[in-house]
Simulated assay, not measured.
Amino acid sequence: MHHISIRTADIHRAIAFYECLGFRMETRFTTGYTLACWLVGWDSRIELLAIPEPKPAVDGFHDQHYVGYYHLSFDLTVHLGDRLTLADWLDTFKTQLGEQGLPWQLLLKPTQQVIGDRLYQVAFVADSDGLPLEFLWELGHVS
Rank of each mutant, 00 (worst) to 15 (best):
M1F: 10
A9Q: 04
I11D: 04
I11S: 05
A14L: 06
I15C: 07
A16S: 11
Y18R: 05
E19Q: 15
G22R: 13
R28T: 08
T30S: 14
T31W: 01
G32D: 00
G32V: 09
T34Y: 00
W38A: 00
W38R: 04
W42F: 06
S44M: 08
I46G: 04
L48I: 05
L48P: 06
L49F: 10
A50M: 06
P52L: 07
P54C: 01
P54M: 05
D59Q: 09
F61A: 01
F61Y: 15
Q64A: 10
Y69E: 02
L76K: 07
L76S: 09
H79K: 15
L80Q: 11
L80P: 06
D82Q: 14
L84M: 13
T85S: 12
L86E: 03
L86G: 03
A87Y: 03
A87C: 09
A87L: 07
W89H: 02
L97N: 13
Q100A: 11
G101K: 06
P103L: 00
P103V: 04
Q105H: 14
L106N: 12
L106H: 07
L108E: 11
P110G: 01
Q112K: 13
Q112E: 15
Q113M: 14
V114M: 12
G116A: 03
G116E: 05
R118Q: 13
L119D: 08
L119W: 01
Y120N: 14
Q121V: 02
Q121P: 09
V122Y: 08
A126H: 05
D129A: 02
G130Y: 04
P132R: 05
E138R: 12
L139N: 09
G140A: 05
G140R: 09
H141E: 07
V142C: 13
V142F: 04
V142N: 10
